[in-house]
């Protein structure tokens, strides 16, 4: 494999479990040194994709190469060169922090000391609890230990399945800070998450829903995919505002967004400020007071919801 080859290449991957289609024609690649995000809700196919890339399961259709190796033929070689952190806490709760780490090092025929270069910045944060049973750690600490165990054999590619699910907002930020440090060190990382805000930490993201990739893009420019005027509206009477907007003939989509409501207009060619002026007038006529209307740039969650609605199998 040369530097120019992708770290991961998936070509028309498919996977079924009985009647359930978990993955359908999934094609993407991950560049060497990239922090790549798989963004999608539970049941979208993220875990199935990780199982194929980690050679734990075989694809039913298509093919994939990891670090230049075929996931079916070269599975042994792949396993020793990747680090994988499954979604469910997968360490031994009755072993101490240090024992878990030593165990994972020995499984890969190495030692904690040999892995020091990669794990030192993370391990230093949990070292004060080295003698504590892994099962007694807090959620954020467990994630850090699991990350150390996935890195102790110095893998070239790190695969993380929902590392921050169920973790509070502060610990989530800290975890992504760690991933950015690792990426800056040259590691290639693929991480999945149901949290749209975490997508901004990735260089590229694949939006995934119902086993299909809806889009692959740079999260900073993905807003350009949204080809309609989008406005944020704020009012003290939010529920009334929501209902009034939904009833408008030109409403394309109306969703609550934090303290605002995002309104997309069906007339794709209008500019935002014209639409804003129109909305101001209509809402004032309906007696909804003190409405602020601002044209905005679409974010990744706007785009995701727009793509979901266009996809054939819409939301449940």
């Amino acid at each position: 494999m040369t530097r120019a080859d992708p770290a991961v290449t998936a070509s028309s991957l498919g996977k079924r479990y009985g009647d359930v289609v978990a993955l359908d024609d999934v094609t993407f690649d991950v560049r060497v040194g990239e922090l790549f995000g798989l963004i999608g809700p539970d049941g979208a196919g993220k875990t199935s994709l990780f199982r194929l890339l980690t050679t734990v399961q075989l694809p039913d259709a298509g093919s994939a190469r990891v670090l230049g190796l075929d996931v079916v033929k070269d599975y042994r070689a792949i396993r020793s060169r990747i680090g994988y952190m499954p979604g469910r806490f997968s360490l031994y709760p009755d072993l101490s922090v240090e024992e878990n780490l030593r165990f994972f090092a020995s499984v890969f025929g190495t030692t904690i000391e040999a892995g020091e270069r990669l794990i030192a910045p993370i391990y230093s944060q949990i070292a004060p609890f080295a003698d504590r049973r892994a099962g007694a750690l807090s959620g954020g600490m467990k994630q850090k230990l699991a990350l150390c165990c996935a890195l102790v054999h110095l893998p070239e590619l790190l695969l993380l399945d929902e590392p921050t699910t169920g973790v509070d907002a502060v610990s989530r930020r800290e975890f992504w800070d760690l991933l950015e440090t690792l990426r800056a060190d040259g590691l290639t990382i693929v991480a999945s998450t149901p949290y749209m805000d975490e997508a901004m930490r990735c260089e590229r993201v694949a939006l995934i829903q119902h086993g299909r990739i809806l889009d692959i893009a740079d999260p900073r420019t993905i807003g350009a995919r949204f080809d309609r005027p989008l406005l944020a509206l704020r009012s003290a009477e939010r529920l009334r505002l929501l209902r009034a907007l939904r009833a408008l003939p030109d409403a394309h989509s109306v969703f609550p967004f934090g303290d605002a409501v995002h309104y997309a207009d069906a007339r794709a060619d209008r500019d935002g400020s014209t639409v804003a002026a129109g909305l101001q007038r209509v809402l004032a006529e309906q007696g909804i007071r003190d409405v602020q209307v601002t044209p905005i740039e679409p974010g990744i969650e706007d785009v995701f919801m727009e793509l979901m609605q266009r996809a054939p199998a819409a939301t449940a």
């Binding site: 999608g40 809700p41 539970d42 979208a44 699910t165 169920g166 149901p194 749209m196 829903q209 529920l239 929501l242 969703f255 609550p256 969650e301 995701f304 919801m305 979901m308 609605q309 939301t315 449940a316």
Partner: peptide, 20 residues
């Protein structure tokens, strides 16, 4: 208690409308 974990962003919003 964390009623919307893991669901897609549209379903999450529909859930909040049920709450309202």
């Amino acid at each position: 208690d964390e009623p919307t974990g893991g669901v897609d962003p549209i379903t999450r919003r529909q859930f909040w409308e049920l709450i309202y």
